[in-house]
């Protein structure tokens, strides 16, 4: 996994609540057996008509908005556990998703793929969405080390699990660690009564 330190970028606003992973990547695009290429079908049914022409009013098709940060309404990533949702967002070029609430499994999947979920207060989210909508050039800074997000003089601290933060900053993942404690896992197996 690549290291994650800080992202300074413009953002794409998506002020919709309960965006589920079926919208992020519909099931019919889950047939691949590798991790690459999912970005092409990110938000497929919101982004394209059934004849594959782009839907002009969808934000990913606008010339105005672009950037490495997606700003979305609350309860982002609910529904299916498909990690393909995190792969699609990352593959498309997003490094950060900002929302006031994330679904659990999505949050874990994002962190395992170097995509940082930044949970902010409802008020901060509202002012961020307003600022970005008014001025698409608004620059947002997300600093993982300092656990702080800021734009136009507004700033807010965000939480991230200490272990996950270390992993992201250093580009480690969980498998490396788990494999390194094999002896302890075997000792647990030998001593446990569970079947």
């Amino acid at each position: 996994m690549e290291k994650f330190k800080q992202v300074i970028s413009t953002a794409v606003p998506m002020p919709i609540e309960d965006i589920d992973t079926d919208q992020i990547i519909p099931a019919r695009f889950l047939k691949a057996t590798s991790r690459e290429g999912f970005g092409d079908n990110l938000f497929r049914d919101w982004r394209y008509n059934s004849d594959n022409s782009p839907k002009v009013d969808f934000v990913l098709n606008s010339d105005e908005y672009s950037g490495k940060i997606l700003v979305a309404g609350r309860n982002f990533g609910c529904g299916s556990s498909r990690e393909h949702a995190a792969w699609a967002l990352h593959d498309y070029g997003f490094k950060v998703v900002v929302s006031s609430f994330f679904a659990d499994i999505f949050k874990g999947n994002a962190l395992n793929n170097g995509l940082l979920p930044v949970q902010v207060s409802d008020d901060f989210l509202a002012s961020l969405l307003e600022a970005v909508s008014e001025n698409p050039q608004t620059e947002i800074s997300v600093n993982l080390e300092a656990q702080e997000i800021s734009f136009d003089g507004h700033r807010e601290a965000f939480e991230v699990n200490a272990y996950k933060k270390e992993c992201l900053l250093n580009g480690y993942d969980d498998i490396d660690y788990l494999v390194s404690i094999k002896d302890e896992i075997e000792a647990y197996e030998a001593s446990s009564i569970v079947i």
């Binding site: 556990s81 498909r82 990690e83 393909h84 995190a86 659990d104 499994i105 874990g108 999947n109 395992n112 793929n113 699990n161 272990y163 993942d173 969980d174 498998i175 660690y177 788990l178 494999v179 404690i181 094999k182 896992i185 197996e189």
Partner: peptide
């Protein structure tokens, strides 16, 4: 509980997962 594919690989490699207790 449901897990993502990275975690599927973790369980394959170690029969364990890193989890914070809900």
């Amino acid at each position: 509980f449901g897990i993502g594919t990275s975690q599927v690989a973790q369980v394959m490699a170690s029969q364990c997962l890193l989890q914070s207790k809900p």
